[in-house]
Amino acid sequence: MSAQQSQGIQTLLEAEKEAAKIVQQARQYRVQKLKDAHSEASKEIEEYKKAKEAEFKAFEASHAGTTSEAQAAVDKDTEVKLKSITDQYNKNKEAVVQKLLDRVVLVKPELHRNLKKAQS
């Protein structure tokens, strides 16, 4: 009976070793599959990123002309307004200076209104 028991124990030990090998292989397989999935996802992300970047560049190129046209229109409008302001300045400069000098030089001395009320 002891020979049978030792043979049974030996069979169990061999089965346990075989099971440990199978578990180890399954772990290695799982790790490899995770690595493969990660690398595949990275590739897909890069491809998607490149596609979106190209799409953005195309959009930017198609709308860049509009920006330069708008800038030119704004520059032209600014020049017109600046010229108008400069013309108005040159036209009214002498009159404004004369009004300021008249106010400073031509003084009409008179009593303050509160002083007039106090004397009455």
Rank of each mutant, 00 (worst) to 15 (best):
A3H: 13
A3S: 14
Q4D: 15
Q4I: 15
Q4K: 14
Q5K: 14
Q5E: 11
S6D: 12
Q7P: 00
G8Q: 13
I9W: 03
I9S: 09
I9R: 05
L12K: 03
L12S: 06
L13V: 15
E14N: 14
A15H: 08
A15P: 00
A15I: 12
E16T: 15
K17M: 13
A19R: 06
A20Y: 01
I22D: 14
I22W: 07
I22M: 13
V23S: 08
V23Q: 07
Q25S: 14
A26I: 13
R27H: 09
Q28P: 00
Y29P: 00
R30F: 06
V31G: 07
Q32W: 05
Q32H: 14
K33Q: 13
K35N: 13
D36K: 06
D36I: 07
H38T: 14
S39C: 11
E40I: 05
S42C: 11
S42R: 14
K43P: 01
K43A: 14
E44G: 13
I45T: 11
Y48N: 15
K49W: 04
K49R: 09
K52Q: 14
A54Y: 04
E55N: 02
F56H: 10
A58I: 09
F59Y: 12
E60C: 06
E60M: 07
H63D: 04
H63M: 07
A64W: 03
G65D: 14
G65N: 10
T66R: 10
S68Q: 15
S68Y: 12
E69Q: 13
A70I: 07
A72E: 12
A72W: 01
A73Y: 00
V74L: 07
K76I: 04
D77M: 08
T78P: 00
T78G: 02
T78C: 03
V80R: 03
V80H: 01
K81G: 02
L82E: 08
L82S: 10
K83L: 08
K83P: 00
T86H: 06
T86D: 06
D87Y: 01
D87A: 03
D87T: 03
Y89N: 03
Y89T: 00
N90A: 03
E94C: 01
E94V: 06
A95Y: 01
V97S: 02
V97R: 03
V97M: 04
K99F: 05
L100S: 06
D102M: 02
D102C: 00
R103S: 12
R103N: 10
V104C: 03
V104T: 07
V104A: 08
V104N: 02
V105M: 04
L106R: 04
V107Y: 02
P109M: 01
E110W: 01
L111V: 10
L111W: 04
L111E: 08
R113K: 08
R113T: 13
N114E: 07
N114L: 05
N114C: 04
L115G: 04
L115W: 02
L115Y: 05
K117G: 01
K117I: 12
Q119M: 12
S120T: 11
S120F: 06
